[in-house]
Amino acid sequence: MVSKNDPSQFHRSSYHHMGDKGSTRMVRVGSRSFPVYPLVIVCLVLLNIILSLAAVVVGINCGSITDFPQNDLMPQVLKTEVEQLQRATSETAHDRQAQEDFVKEHMSNQQIKLQLQSNKTYNDELQKQLELLQAERAALQSNTSDIVESCGLCMPGWFLSNTSCYFYGKRQSTIGKNWTTSREDCINRGADLAVFDTAEEHIMVFEHLPKVKWGTYLWGIGGAWIGLTDHQREGTWMWINNVTLNYTGFWMGGEPNNYGSGEHCVGVMITDKGLKSLFDARCESQREWLCEKKLS
């Protein structure tokens, strides 16, 4: 008899070989026997499934661990980006507003500049008109004064002395007239170069003529031509009305001297040294001139 509890017997019954070719290894579990190879395959498949499930579980856990900080930081990152975008938008709007303000200010400044230029031009025109009006007023006042002083007997720009009206022709800049052209100008005005018939008349006209300081005049251009020459005879001074000069106390010191043997015309120069004012000079020199028109 063989006992059921004999291990050796169980071992032999669990793992025995069939002597014939093509026999299959069997394993006995309890009262049943199963082929070995299918059972091994099933075990391997179950193990593979278990390992796959374990890998999936581990992957999910790792993914959760990895994603957790990112999911937690995402709102903060988005918030930071939104704030940066808002700041950039605000700065852009501020810059755009600054540019618009600059353009407006520049245009305003240009308008102000143009207005100032226009005002300056207008003021310059007003200043010119004012100067013209002042000059006209001065001329009118001078003419009125001349008319009043001459009791209306002389034309504007002329002065009355004794029984004649006199016109003092002034040079333009440095350009005067020689003796001949001076007389032509007087004739064109209905007069002639001045003639002092007497010393008294000389003295009366003397008071109306412009005066220069002694030593400041120029002999070459100073003084004014009058109607006195020695053309007819050297040294004999005759007025243009053919009357000989009958007084001699009004010659300047050293005059007449016929300097250079060519001085044949006479001028008058009023200085601060008294009544001595006559001098002889070359007739072609450029000077001012004195016209006289007798009252009829």
Score class of each variant (00 low, 15 high):
Val2Arg: 06
Asn5Gly: 14
Asp6Asn: 11
Asp6Gln: 06
Pro7Asn: 07
His11Asp: 05
His17Ile: 12
His17Glu: 14
Ser23Tyr: 13
Thr24Gln: 14
Arg25Pro: 09
Arg25Glu: 04
Met26Glu: 03
Ser31Cys: 07
Ser31Glu: 10
Ser31Tyr: 10
Arg32His: 10
Ser33Gln: 08
Ser33His: 14
Val40Asp: 01
Val42Glu: 07
Val42Ala: 00
Cys43Ala: 15
Leu44Phe: 14
Leu44Thr: 09
Val45Ala: 09
Ile49Lys: 10
Ile49Val: 14
Leu53Arg: 06
Ala54His: 13
Ala54Met: 07
Val56Met: 14
Gly59Leu: 15
Ile60Ala: 13
Ile60Asp: 04
Asn61Lys: 15
Cys62Gln: 14
Ile65Met: 06
Thr66Arg: 09
Phe68Ser: 12
Asp72Glu: 10
Leu73Glu: 09
Val77Gln: 03
Lys79Asp: 02
Lys79Ala: 13
Thr80Ala: 03
Glu81Ile: 01
Leu85Trp: 08
Arg87Asp: 05
Glu91His: 03
Ala93Cys: 03
Ala93Thr: 11
Arg96Gln: 14
Arg96Trp: 04
Ala98Trp: 00
Gln99Glu: 08
Ser108Phe: 06
Gln111Arg: 15
Gln115Tyr: 12
Gln115Thr: 09
Leu116Ile: 06
Lys120Arg: 05
Thr121Leu: 15
Asp124His: 08
Leu126Ser: 01
Lys128Ser: 01
Leu130Asp: 11
Leu132Tyr: 13
Leu133Pro: 02
Gln134His: 10
Gln134Asn: 11
Ala135Gly: 13
Arg137Trp: 09
Ala138Ser: 04
Ala138Gln: 09
Ser142Asn: 15
Ser142Gln: 13
Asn143Trp: 10
Asn143Thr: 06
Thr144Asn: 15
Ser145Asn: 00
Glu149Leu: 11
Met155Ser: 15
Met155Thr: 12
Met155Trp: 14
Gly157Leu: 03
Ser161Met: 05
Asn162Phe: 06
Thr163Ala: 08
Ser164Asn: 04
Tyr166His: 08
Phe167Pro: 05
Gly169Cys: 03
Arg171Thr: 01
Asn178Lys: 07
Trp179Ser: 07
Thr181Asp: 15
Thr181Trp: 08
Thr181Ser: 01
Ser182Gln: 08
Glu184Thr: 11
Cys186Arg: 04
Ala191His: 12
Leu193Asn: 01
Val195Glu: 04
Asp197Gln: 10
Thr198Ser: 13
Ala199Phe: 05
Glu201Trp: 03
Val205Phe: 05
His208Cys: 11
Leu209Cys: 03
Leu209Ser: 00
Trp214Met: 15
Trp214Val: 12
Gly215Val: 02
Trp219Glu: 12
Ile221Cys: 12
Ala224Asn: 08
Trp225Ser: 05
Trp225Arg: 03
Gly227Gln: 02
Thr229His: 00
Gly235Leu: 01
Tyr247Ala: 04
Gly249Thr: 00
Gly249Pro: 05
Gly249Met: 09
Gly253Phe: 09
Gly253Asn: 04
Gly253Glu: 00
Glu255Trp: 00
Tyr259Ile: 15
Ser261Val: 08
Gly262Arg: 03
Val266Ala: 02
Gly267Asn: 07
Val268Arg: 09
Ile270Phe: 07
Gly274Thr: 04
Phe279Asn: 10
Glu284Thr: 01
Glu284Arg: 02
Trp289Ile: 02
Leu290Val: 06
Leu290Gln: 00
Leu295Glu: 04
Leu295Gly: 02
Ser296Asp: 07
